[in-house]
């Protein structure tokens, strides 16, 4: 080594640096440009459709975008999407947290590892398979459950049932719950496994039972992770297309009785209408797709807000 160690490094390194930084800058700019182009294209098409719309885009309960003049509104889609995704979340999150806790803190290792594998495997099943399974296996078997629900909770209206085939938003919700269960479970499990040993020991040394350790140390530590995992699942449920289209008996209406067949979701509606749609019909579907995109953004933003509010107390501060 010469004493002039502060001299510039060999020029080949410099050139490599320059090429790499040029490439990555270029890739970044290209990505932004492509995204901007997509956004401009979609928004322009959507605006065309919304301008031509004779109905109210938000409150009209029908979808006749190919008619002249076109009449369409997203109310039914918004209801179907939100209702089925909420059902999915309500069913999946508690179960997923339970399985994740079992794998991470209760099961002996020789049981925990295979269960973990199975859960990860389930996450890899294509959604059309879930759809076929839902339509062929789940639908016929749910009528009995729905009749039972109707008997005891029919008075609520939401859980009344007319005996129609169980191709309803509730069935979609149940199927979506099964579909998003693996991803939520596997992310939460990872988070729970990262609970600092020191905190679990602190709880144990205070005389906590296993469940109290979970409540004092594991769940609070994993809280933001559970929220993120749930949002990941919700994102999938909101946008799920094939499985919903296979199971749901499409009817463009809002039926507050969630057990009865009929309803529509954004993604399912796009998938089932796109092929037969004319130019105006496609633009209308694009407009509805943009709303779905906004919905996902809002959900993610809300999740970030919740996580940020608890940042001060996050495990990361330790």
């Amino acid at each position: 080594m010469s004493p002039t160690t502060t001299a510039s490094p060999p020029s080949t390194g410099r050139t490599g640096d320059r090429i790499f930084s040029g490439l990555s800058k270029g890739a970044g700019i290209a990505l932004l440009a492509i995204m901007a182009a997509i956004a401009v294209f979609l928004t322009a098409r959507a605006v065309v459709a919304i301008r031509a719309n004779e109905g109210n885009f938000l409150t009209t309960f029908e979808w006749n975008a190919n008619a002249d003049p076109p009449v369409f509104g997203i109310a039914v889609l918004l209801f179907g999407t939100v209702a089925s995704s909420l059902i999915a979340m309500l069913l999946a999150v508690p179960v997923a947290v339970g399985i994740a806790l079992f794998i991470s803190h209760y099961a002996p290792r020789r049981l925990a590892t295979p269960i973990g594998y199975v859960v990860d495997l389930l996450a890899a099943v294509p959604s059309i398979i879930y759809g076929l399974w839902g339509a062929l296996f789940l639908v016929p078997r749910l009528t009995g459950l729905y009749e039972w629900l109707d008997q005891f909770f029919g008075w609520t209206g939401v859980l009344s049932y007319d005996g129609s085939p169980a191709r309803s938003l509730m069935t979609v919700g149940i199927l979506l719950a099964i579909m998003i269960l693996p991803i939520i479970t596997s992310v939460t499990r990872e988070v729970f496994l990262q609970t600092p040993k020191a905190n679990e020991e602190a709880a144990l040394a205070l005389g906590a039972t296993r469940w109290e350790v979970v409540r004092m140390a594991v769940l609070p530590f994993g809280r933001s992770g559970v929220i993120s995992a749930s949002m990941l699942g919700l994102g999938r449920a909101l946008g799920e297309t094939m499985a919903v289209a296979t199971v749901l008996s499409p009817a463009f209406l809002i039926n507050l009785s969630l057990l009865e067949s009929g309803g529509a979701t954004f993604a399912q509606n796009i998938a089932s209408q796109f092929k037969e749609a004319g130019s105006m019909g496609r633009d209308a579907l694009i407009a509805s797709g943009l709303v779905l995109f906004l919905l996902t953004l809002v959900v993610n933003g809300a999740a970030r807000l919740i996580i940020a509010r608890h940042k001060e107390y996050s495990g990361a501060a330790a």
Partner: peptide
């Protein structure tokens, strides 16, 4: 314990 271990979420 050897390392202080207050509950970070509390």
């Amino acid at each position: 314990f050897q390392r202080p271990n207050p509950f970070p979420t509390m």
